[in-house]
Design a protein around this nucleic acid. Structure first.
Lengths: 192, 192
DNA sequence: CTCTGTGAAATTTTTCACAGCG
DNA sequence: CGCTGTGAAAAATTTCACAGAG
């Protein structure tokens, strides 16, 4: 497949596709294009998607349950190894094939299962406390879905997904009539 | 509050704060700083957050329910005016204070309630069909949470939130050891 | 004196454009 | 020939640095 075609599918410039792919190495064939299968393998390799990343989800409300059942995590190497909640009514219940465990077990869970990533799906009030517990337990990568500002030590990676922000971006374009922006995937220039 | 302080809180450079704010107009006071309250008002105004944006959520699984109950939508002017699903077992049920309506009512719902934004929280298989129906009904802004690639006419704004992508970004930094990146909010340079 | 607003410089990102491989 | 890989140019973004307002 040519960079031209890839660019069209991706909604970007062909030169950008070639330049970006060139950072992986020279995997294209001049006069022909790229072997997509080989490309997938190389990108997977380079981005570390061959790894296995144990994930713990804290907060098993609707969002936590949605995440627990989200397809595609597995395909990309993310293995949910624990669901954690404080609510005694939730602890012990089986969600998406896993039994919900109490927050107090977090240190043991993180250590014994080698948790690499913590996902916060708690209410805003609980977010900072949970983040602190995760960090104390040794987790160094955290994804925060709670609508709260939390702080961490500089050696911890923290990302926040703010669902309302996505709507805001849409409404901004809706308001400023004119052209719709190029179709975008959140967080990236990549296309939908 | 000084640009220095704002920058620190935001995790960015002070000059950037000043340059960005300067696009709103000259709302700072030299030697003193910015009046935060006034700033909030100006930004709210400029970004169109004074508007009221009727939102319809399609697909009332765990994610749809989580979105339906997500705090902060209201505060930012997003009003959920309808929850829609195809499943007869879900239609008629009351979720987050709203009765779930059938997908077949979509055209009527969009027109009569002036829906501005459609949120897709369906399984991947249903996403394209739902998007087409929303567009046919007149919706021009769509936020897609389904793990599926969908296409729309160029005059429609489409954004995709890919939850696995967020984890991938974290795992990339986790793998490439070194420093954690500056704390980031998804999709934006803004801080958490 | 402090801190904004902003030209100018530095840096980063994107695009162009073309030599040259298959 | 067609299409990649990539220097070089162009554009966009970020930072510097400082005149001058309060």
């Amino acid at each position: 497949m040519s960079s031209e075609r890839l660019a069209e599918l991706a909604g970007v410039n062909a030169a950008k596709v070639r330049k970006d792919l060139s950072y992986l190495g020279s995997y294209g064939t001049r006069g022909v294009g790229y072997d997509v299968e080989h490309l997938v393998r190389q990108i997977t390799q380079t981005l570390g998607l061959t790894h296995d990343w144990p994930v713990v989800i804290v907060g098993i409300g609707n969002l936590g349950q949605a995440l627990a059942g989200y397809r595609g995590f597995g395909a990309r190497g993310f293995r949910i190894v624990a669901l954690v909640d404080t609510d005694p009514a939730k602890v012990g219940r089986r969600i998406a094939g896993r039994v919900v465990e109490p927050l107090s077990d977090l240190p043991e869970i993180v250590t014994s299962r080698g948790v690499a990533i913590g996902v916060i799906a708690t209410p805003a009030e609980a977010a900072q406390d949970v983040v602190d517990r995760l960090v104390a337990a040794g987790v160094r990568s955290i994804l925060n879905f709670a609508p709260a500002v939390v702080t961490v030590a500089p050696d911890v990676s923290l990302r926040k997904v703010d669902l309302a922000t996505e709507l805001q971006i849409l409404s901004f374009y809706g308001q400023h009539g004119g052209e719709a922006p190029a179709t975008r995937i959140a967080s990236h220039g990549a296309p939908v």
